[in-house]
Computed example of a mutant assay.
Amino acid sequence: MPKSSAHCCQKGARWYCPAAEDHAIRLEEGDMLLLPRWQQHKLCSSSDVAAVDIAEVAARSGSDLWDSSRPLAGIRVLKHQPDAPNPPDVQVLAMMFRADHAYQDNLANCMPSIFHLSAADVEFVSLITVVREFVATHIECRANGYAAAGHRMAEMILIELLRSIVAKRPEGTTGWLNGLGSPAISAAMTALHLEPRRRWTLNELADVSGLARPQFSFHFSRVVGQSPMSYVQSVRLQWAADEIMRGAAIKAVADEMGYSTPFGFRKAFVREYGVPPGRWRMDRSAAS
């Protein structure tokens, strides 16, 4: 499944060097970094040092890496002792997030490839402190419920990072994340996402928002960057893509969405994702 990751520099400073970029980012103590789209990278004390594969670090630490079959067993402590006379003492809290294909793709497309939040701009330090202390306290004993609790704490940090991205988006940018900043648009979007299979009309969404239909349509298009009904179509197709990935029959999904023939559904799906639903499922399954 698609992955995003976040890093919080807890102690010391280090460099983040993405393989696909031509520049490195220096992280000071307390800084945070969110990578909405997974990309190969190295974490180092100097941008010119040779990288050590994380699998090797994990082996030295006596820890397994992420096990996709056990999504709540992902709390790990990895220790790496560089081959240097006086290696820097650096501690990093790292988190990986997985979500349904279509929804995470839609979220990632609204965000920068790398989001760097300096320590001075982190407004949820107390939450990070709680998570760090929780991991330090429970990683050895692994008491009942520690994995589930850690999972929820990581989700809370992700939510705070997303809120920071929305707050720092340049004036005039569009995207569905922008809609969350408008109470009226947010109300309509929330209702739509709660019932993606419903055949929403423009009047119904306007009623939920509390705005008149023309006002709602204009405001939605200006803030989100697409018309309300175009957004409805995208959300419904996201739901369909998710169902298909779960193993649902394509014809059954087409029927559920109200298409009279699978061909009509296939045409809409190709317009949204570029490939037919069957091919899309095969490609995503192979990439997981």
Score class of each variant (00 low, 15 high):
Asp67Thr: 05
Leu93Gly: 02
Gly62Gln: 09
Val52Phe: 03
Ser46Leu: 09
Phe97Leu: 07
Cys44Ser: 15
Asp48Thr: 15
Ser45Val: 09
Met96Gln: 08
Asp67Gln: 13
Gly62Arg: 04
Pro85Asp: 08
Trp66Asp: 03
Pro87Gln: 07
Ala51Glu: 12
Ser46Gln: 14
Ala59His: 14
Gln40Ala: 14
Ser69Ala: 14
Ser63Asp: 09
His41Cys: 00
Ala59Gln: 15
Ala51Ile: 08
Ala59Asn: 13
Cys44Thr: 15
Pro82Asn: 11
Gln91Val: 14
Asp83His: 12
Val92Cys: 03
Gly30Leu: 05
Ile75Phe: 06
Met96Tyr: 02
Arg37His: 03
Ala58Ser: 12
Val52Arg: 04
Met96Val: 12
Asp67Ile: 08
Arg98His: 09
Ile54Ser: 03
Trp38Pro: 00
Arg37Asp: 02
Gly74Tyr: 00
Gln91Glu: 15
Ser46Phe: 10
Asp53Leu: 07
Phe97Trp: 07
Ser69His: 15
Arg26Ser: 13
Leu78Glu: 11
His80Asp: 13
Met96Pro: 01
Gln81Ser: 13
Cys44Gln: 11
Ala51Tyr: 05
Ala59Trp: 11
Leu93Pro: 04
Val52Ile: 11
His80Leu: 11
Cys44Ile: 08
Asp64Leu: 09
Ala84Gln: 14
Asp64Ala: 12
Arg98Trp: 06
Ser69Asp: 15
Leu78Val: 12
Asn86Lys: 13
Met96Ile: 09
Ala55Gln: 15
Gln91Ser: 14
Ile54Arg: 04
Arg70Pro: 01
Ala73Ser: 15
Glu29Asn: 10
Val49Ser: 11
Ala50Leu: 07
Ser46Cys: 13
Leu34Gln: 00
Ser46Thr: 13
Leu34Tyr: 02
Leu34Ala: 02
Pro71Glu: 05
Met95Val: 03
Ala73Met: 09
Gln40Ile: 11
Ser45Pro: 10
Arg70Asp: 08
His80Lys: 08
Lys42Cys: 05
Leu27Gly: 01
His80Phe: 14
Ser69Phe: 12
Arg26His: 13
Val77Arg: 03
Ser46Met: 09
Val77Ala: 04
Pro71Asn: 08
